[in-house]
């Protein structure tokens, strides 16, 4: 039975209910899993080789379960941090619904099952990459980098970037340059994406003692780093049109979206995002970006809505668009491979 070990301040002790299966499912971070499934499936299809549809589905399932397992291990180890942060204190372990040891056990069991099934059903290269991804996220990122350095999400982002290479390896049995180009795209996307977010919730990270860039180096340096990473990220997004990975649809999406991305990154750089805490995000969940514009567009009612903080809007816009852009890039690759549109090999 669940033990209310690290109860969130919002949850009175006498309201802790018995854990349901959905609480265990939440340990697997289903929202993160959905992105992993999408990028892994894109890698699998972009390899443009024949794989039995059932085996392809099993490969994607193994990657999803492996990602979920590393999420459960993360929730076990980070329960103390999660209990202090607004966006994470409702998670099953800090909410007292699931014991930390249960989360750890679930993580280890699912890790072993996913890697072994991948190895036996698909191939051991994909299984090895999956095992590396799980260990990298659960041990290198969660247990080491996250609490130690402001570069935590830069290096740790590799774990979230690897699924396309695993998918490609599952389909083709190897992982050529183009598979790693997809990895590089997600790897370079991660810093501007997360730093844009951390600019408007940095007080939460500071409270939890997590050395995110805005906490350690300040908002101004973070805005500069966002712009610098974006300037490297966008050309890399165009590269698949020169390496025989992306076709004309991909080129159009990456070029147009890249322009918007750079514009938003420039706006964040010129803004005062992160200089002051934004009171509008105080009671919101982290990913409620869709609600933000409506709230801003609503007529101001004196005393009912806190005054806007200009830069936070720019940071939120970049954060929201970064998700859309990554989705569009991979959707374009997926569509081209499925329809059979020929990839380009434009001279660099």
């Amino acid at each position: 039975m669940a033990k209310p070990a690290v109860l969130s301040p919002d949850t009175p002790a006498d309201t802790v209910r018995a854990a349901r299966w959905q609480d265990y499912f939440q340990l697997l971070k289903p929202r993160v899993m959905s992105l992993v499934v999408f990028t892994a499936a894109t890698g699998l299809v972009a390899a443009r080789t024949h794989i039995h549809p059932l085996l392809g589905a099993v490969a994607v399932l193994c990657i999803a379960v492996g990602a979920g397992a590393s999420g459960a291990l993360n929730m076990w180890y980070d329960a103390d941090i999660d209990a202090k942060m607004r966006r994470t204190r409702g998670r099953p372990v800090p909410a007292g619904l699931v014991e930390g040891s249960e989360a750890a056990t679930l993580g280890v069991v699912l890790s072993l099952l996913s890697v072994l099934l991948m190895g036996m059903a698909i191939n051991w290269l994909a299984a090895g990459l999956l095992a590396f991804t799980i260990v990298f996220y659960a041990v290198v990122y969660t247990m080491w980098l996250k609490r130690w350095t402001a570069q935590n999400i830069v290096i740790g982002g590799l774990a979230g970037a690897l699924p396309p290479a695993i998918g490609w390896a599952a389909a083709a049995g190897d992982a050529p340059l183009n598979a790693w180009l997809m990895v590089l795209i997600i790897f370079l996307w991660t810093p501007p994406h997360f730093w844009a977010l951390s600019l408007y919730i940095s007080t939460d990270y500071a409270k939890a003692g997590v050395p995110m860039l805005p906490v350690v180096k300040g908002a101004k340096e973070t805005r500069k780093q966002i712009l610098l990473y974006s300037l490297v990220f966008i050309p890399v997004c165009l590269a698949p049109a020169a390496t025989g990975l992306g076709g004309p649809l991909y080129l159009a999406v990456s070029a147009l979206g890249g322009l918007v991305f750079l514009t938003l990154a420039w706006r964040v750089f010129r803004s005062d995002a992160g200089d002051a805490a934004d009171p509008r995000v105080a009671d919101r969940a982290l990913y409620d970006v869709a609600e933000a514009p409506a709230a801003e567009a609503a007529p101001a009612v004196e005393g009912k809505r806190p005054p806007p903080v200009g830069g936070a809007k720019d940071a939120r816009n970049l954060f929201a668009f970064s998700i859309l852009y990554l989705f569009a890039l991979f959707a374009a690759l997926l569509a081209e491979a499925m329809i059979g549109i020929r990839a380009l090999e434009l001279p660099l």
Binding site: A19, R20, W21, Y24, L54, V58, L61, L113, L117, A121
Partner: peptide
Amino acid sequence: RNIALALGLVAFVALVFVV
């Protein structure tokens, strides 16, 4: 929780069989 666990195990066995 028990039903979810049972379904998960049955699904895993079926998956290994089909694979």
